[in-house]
Design a protein around this nucleic acid. Structure first.
Length: 480
RNA sequence: GGCGACUUAGCCAAGUGGUAAGGCAGCGGUCUGCAAAACCGCGAUCCCGGGUUCGAUUCCCGGAGUCGCCUCCA
């Protein structure tokens, strides 16, 4: 059926059609590198990663750009307080951001443009807007005249007349002195005394406004029209609304063909946000021993991307169990494969191979339907269930087991969880000498039929976080 | 004040105009020295009240509750 996506502008699910067949230009709103990004931010980045992976699995050549906002009020203030340049101030935050992305197995974007490196392009765009009558300088700043752009509000559905200035409590009123209208937004901000981030411009010393960076960098790297523009729902207004206005006012071209927005992650009933002070970071969870793939799984599958997701401890545990079930079946298929060139068994109908094919088809169809990963995972778990059943009964041929593993790999190229999670178990897990000694001692006790001692040792190992499973071919363990 | 979203089993969560996927947890069983894992079996008047319809969880209206946005937050 091909990929169908919900488009924020049109408000419905519709076929996704890039401008150039087979090629997708994708721009995703990245982090403001001030403080550590939290799970809510990463939920959005992960959903975008899922989209990117599904596009590539579907045969599209994707060019993915994610901006890094490295100049902004809080950064400037933080740098000033620390007495360092903004580059020095943001460097560790940028590093931490990439560390978390790697931990979560997010495919790197092709470009990570930084706002501070695109100031000339932003100024060019501002000059075009001023020349065209959409921008006006005032007291060293430049503002966008919203009233001059008739389609303003189309994305967010907020009628210009219905906007109640200051209703959200986010307005810093003294910034608006020079504006002609309250809803006008700033393209270029005049420097204030003592600010560390300053660029020369035709309007005087200053720095770029927030929205202009995304327009300038998207156009510089992807052209005047991008196929996909993604971000969190809180960017719909004003950020993306303003991007459309300033971009289309400057070029006369459609800026974005398809808008995708990820819903919020909630904690304790409210939005997770730095400003709310209810933030959980990847770093904090990892420090507690939560496996990164469990975090990825939860943020991807906890709810469809257009639904709010409540972050809860119990769900983290449930996610860990679900990941273990997927990994368990993956390993079971991998381990039961005969050596290459060995004898093939099970000449009968290849039920497992057929089940794998069905699962892959269902998974792909589910993702084609507006990235319905919960439905896709249902297909995946059905394969696990059917596969385990056939393996238990000895009804899975070697070809079937290979097909099941192959099907899981196909799914996991999009999901991005199972193979890495299997590796997490193996890597994080090498037993310490003490643990190995306990394990070996227990094996000997079992061989001696000293079950009382074996059970005691098993309980000891479990307290150390190692679950032992006795199986026909010998005991084995896994971290829990 | 304006705009909008959501409400499905103990928890999380898909989905459909013809009585509802999947995951976690729980209970019983098979297997096991005992466990674990896996497998078999067990669970829903789909927030409430109207309406449309042969038939609504699914469409419409009203209500209740929860939440988001209304200028620099993913």
């Amino acid at each position: 059926m091909g990929l169908h996506l919900y488009d924020t502008m049109r408000g419905r699910v519709e076929p996704f059609q890039p401008r150039e067949p087979g090629r997708v230009r994708m721009y995703t709103c990245g982090p403001t590198v001030h403080g550590r990004n939290h799970l809510g931010n990463f939920r959005t980045y992960l959903q975008e990663d899922l989209l990117r992976r599904h596009l590539e699995a579907s045969g599209f050549a994707v060019t993915h750009v994610m901006n890094i906002t490295d100049v902004e009020d809080k950064i400037i203030r933080g740098a000033a307080e620390a007495g360092v340049s903004i580059d020095q101030y943001t460097a560790p935050h940028i590093e931490a951001f990439f560390t978390d992305l790697r931990r979560l197995n997010v495919l790197p974007a092709h470009h990570y443009p930084r706002a501070t490196q695109y100031v000339p392009q932003m100024l060019q765009l501002i000059e075009r807007l001023v020349a065209a009558g959409f921008g006006y300088p005032a007291e060293g700043s430049v503002y966008f005249h919203v009233g001059a752009f008739p389609h303003y509000g189309a994305l967010s559905g907020l009628p210009a007349a219905g906007l109640q200035a200051g209703a959200s409590g986010r307005v810093d009123s003294d910034e608006y002195d020079a504006k002609e209208e309250v809803r006008d937004f700033v393209l270029w901000k005049a420097s204030r005394p003592g600010e560390v981030a300053v660029w020369p411009s035709p309007y005087g010393q200053g720095r770029p406004g927030w929205h202009i960076e995304c327009s300038a960098m998207a156009m510089a790297l992807l052209g005047e029209t991008v196929d996909l523009h993604c971000g969190g729902v809180d960017n719909i207004f004003p950020h993306h609304e303003n991007e459309i206005a300033q971009s289309e006012a400057a070029t006369g071209q459609q800026f974005v063909r398809h808008w995708m927005h990820c819903e919020h992650l909630l904690l304790a009933g409210g939005k997770m946000a730095k400003s709310e002070g209810n933030v959980v970071t990847v770093e904090a969870l990892v420090a507690r021993g939560v496996r990164p793939m469990v975090i990825r799984y939860l943020l991807l599958s906890g709810a469809h991307y257009r639904r709010r997701l409540h972050f809860r401890e119990e769900e983290l545990e449930a996610a860990a169990e679900a990941v273990d079930r997927l990994v368990g079946f993956w390993r079971r298929c991998a381990e039961s494969l005969p050596p290459a060139g060995g004898p093939q068994d099970g000449a009968g109908p290849d039920l497992l191979g057929a089940a794998a094919q069905r699962a892959v088809a269902r998974f792909q169809a589910a993702l084609d339907d507006d990235l319905n990963l919960p439905a896709g995972l249902a297909a995946c778990f059905d394969l696990v269930h059917e596969g385990n059943r056939l393996l238990d009964r000895g009804e899975a041929s070697a070809a079937g087991r290979a097909a099941a593993l192959d099907g899981l790999r196909t799914i996991d190229r999009v999901l991005g969880v199972i193979e890495v999670a299997a590796g997490e178990v193996a890597v994080a897990s090498a037993l310490s000498p003490e643990e190995q000694a306990l394990f070996d001692t227990r094996e000997r006790a079992r061989a001696d039929r000293d079950y009382g001692r074996a059970d005691a040792l098993r309980a000891d190992l479990l307290r150390l976080g190692i679950a032992v499973e006795d199986r026909p071919g010998g005991s084995r363990w896994r971290r829990v």
